[in-house]
């Protein structure tokens, strides 16, 4: 067992446990906080995979912006009533079964991934020579320019939509 495998074992275990914690906490604030820890672990895993820029984005956008948005919403909503309710709905055994079966199926597929197609030109050395950010940027602004622009429109729509929806009571 190599060092990297040990590290991966640690991350995998912790992340699985954290995921379970996220979906099982009664108080949403706790869920969000466990999510934060999970995201930090995920960013570390990205570093493992030579995606430094993505690791930074994961921290800044997900942990820094989206989770904070969730926390804001939790604050705006009166949760006292929810505290008294059972956390799971009546169909939870079926849901659990579905989750386990799905996991089993997906894991069984994962074991079958053996044949890899031809490798691309972005080897670890190539990426390191130029820097992760530059490599990503080059691909994003050339090959994926149109999707990039469309993504910006999606964000614009989201901004406008959020403002309109949250502005006033819907009659």
């Amino acid at each position: 067992m190599t060092t990297s495998q040990i590290f991966f074992g640690y991350f995998a275990t912790v992340m699985t446990v954290l995921s379970l914690l996220v979906v099982t906490r009664k108080n949403p604030v706790h869920s969000v906080l466990w999510m934060l820890v999970l995201f930090i672990h995920m960013a570390a895993l990205y570093l493992f995979l030579n995606a430094e820029f993505l690791a930074a984005i994961q921290m800044i956008v997900y942990a820094g912006a989206i989770l904070v948005l969730f926390l804001f919403v939790v604050m705006m909503i009166n949760l006292n009533k929810e505290e008294t309710m059972p956390k799971f709905n009546s169909q939870w055994p079926v849901g659990l079964g579905i989750g386990i079966i799905l996991a089993g199926f997906l894991v069984s597929i994962a074991g079958k991934i053996t044949v890899l197609p031809e490798l691309g030109k972005y080897s670890i050395e190539a990426v390191r020579a130029e820097g992760s950010m530059m490599t990503v940027g080059k691909v994003l602004y050339t090959e994926y320019l149109l999707p990039f622009e469309i993504a910006s429109i999606v964000l614009l729509v989201a901004i406008i939509g959020a403002v309109v929806l949250a502005k006033k009571r819907i009659e």
């Binding site: 996220v22 979906v23 906490r25 949403p28 869920s31 919403v73 799971f88 709905n89 939870w92």
Partner: peptide, 8 residues
């Protein structure tokens, strides 16, 4: 599938 709380 199983949670009641919309936020979660």
């Amino acid at each position: 599938l199983t949670r009641r709380n919309l936020l979660i």
